[in-house]
Amino acid sequence: MRDEEIATLQAILADQAARPGALLPILHQVQHAFGFIPKDAVPQIALALNLTRAEVHGVVTFYADFRQTPPARKVIKLCRAEACQARDSDATAARLEQGLGVTLGAASADGSLALEPIYCLGLCASGPAALVNETPVARLTGERLERLIAEALA
């Protein structure tokens, strides 16, 4: 980690470490700052919370949200749960894979675009639904789906 990255991490730890049950809020903030949980951050987080590195690593790897590598520039998280399945999200998934040239659960070779599964966004009467980075999109069929693909490739 570079000096300014260490400073960012230490500022988060100084601000958060005293909270009860601080590890999840800290990991969220670290990921927000760096885009993922850098490997070198784990010992420092452990030290601040008086935990072992293994305990922190165990938490990082338990939760689907926490990444250990930088994310793609654009991440499309497509809902793969039942209510969207009932609204033919299989067809949407297939069209996205084909249109974007990435397989679900993978990123494009240049790391610019990733297509990931997510299990329910609570948009179950408007599916198929997805999150594009932080923006929700729904009714992903036909023209709306084509527009999403065109924007993702732009």
Binding site: C79, A81, A83, C84, Y119, G122, L123, C124, A125
Partner: peptide, 12 residues
Amino acid sequence: DEGDSGTFADRL
């Protein structure tokens, strides 16, 4: 933590 697919009452 309303994770059940098909539910959105908490969110709403």
